[in-house]
Design a protein around this nucleic acid. Structure first.
Lengths: 134, 134
DNA sequence: AGACACTACATGCACATGCATCCAATGCAA
DNA sequence: TTGCATTGGATGCATGTGCATGTAGTGTCT
């Protein structure tokens, strides 16, 4: 029975611990800052960003499935996240004409504005936390 | 108002997205595999590992505070995590003689065994998920 | 000793998440 | 067309998390 890690395994473990530390620092600070100052969670922001990237101003929006790869969440969690954004007035849900099972999620003006306001803070947090070494 | 990211910002965002993807892949698979085959979550495993590293066989164990830096959890979440490990028979909680506010957390034989059994799977998952590029 | 601030951990509560399941719409086969 | 498997998304439920708070023990100052 292996009681000690091989050098390769030790490297993997070190890499994983570093990743965990960076992720925790960044995610925690992002959630706190975006939450306090813009009422957004980290994943909410990611979804808004994907919507901004994925559709022009007059566009119908994106399907829920197209948003899924962006946020690393289960389908149910994404569904509820969109529900929160909708309740906050940042996106609209509309039936998809082509496939009436699908839902088109589109940014509202308020959503666009909220994203634009939060963006600088988001980048600022990244530059703070991703730079540190430990 | 900046509508586009500067090159430095774009680099940070790309780095962050890569980190998020790696973290999600690895954490999700670790939770699933360790959960199915050993009844452990990712953080439970990390705590067991810290206990193995931090105390010899006959040792009294570690203070809760000494475990905190390892798992990136709030104090309350860590307290409950230890509660779960205790209920599962993998660790014991004992009053700390020197400072009776403190709690000594020590591995049981069962805990040591469980960790030893889960270790290979843990390393295997890391080597799988940390290697991939996307 | 007595009062008070502080520390270590536990707990009530609100909330986000994943899993399983449900429902409606679609597509395909007979 | 009818029947049935599949897909897109929503929802009930159990659980894990953070925040705020509670409780007990410690240290300090007078």
């Amino acid at each position: 029975m292996a009681e000690l890690d091989s050098p390769e395994e030790a490297g993997l473990v070190a890499q994983w611990r570093d990743l965990l530390a960076r992720h925790a620092r960044t995610a925690c600070l992002l959630d706190r800052e975006l939450g306090e100052k813009h009422g957004l969670g980290m994943s909410e922001f990611e979804v808004l960003e994907r919507l901004v990237e994925g559709c022009e101003s007059g566009d119908k929006g994106l399907r829920v499935q197209e948003l899924a790869p962006t946020v690393h969440l289960s389908q149910s969690a994404l569904s509820r996240l969109i529900g929160r954004l909708e309740k906050a007035g940042l996106v609209t849900r509309a039936m998809c004409a082509a496939d009436r099972r699908g839902i088109q999620v589109a940014l509202t003006e308020e959503g666009r504005r909220c994203y634009a306001e939060a963006r600088a803070l988001h980048r600022e947090v990244l530059s703070l936390t991703l730079a540190e070494e430990p």
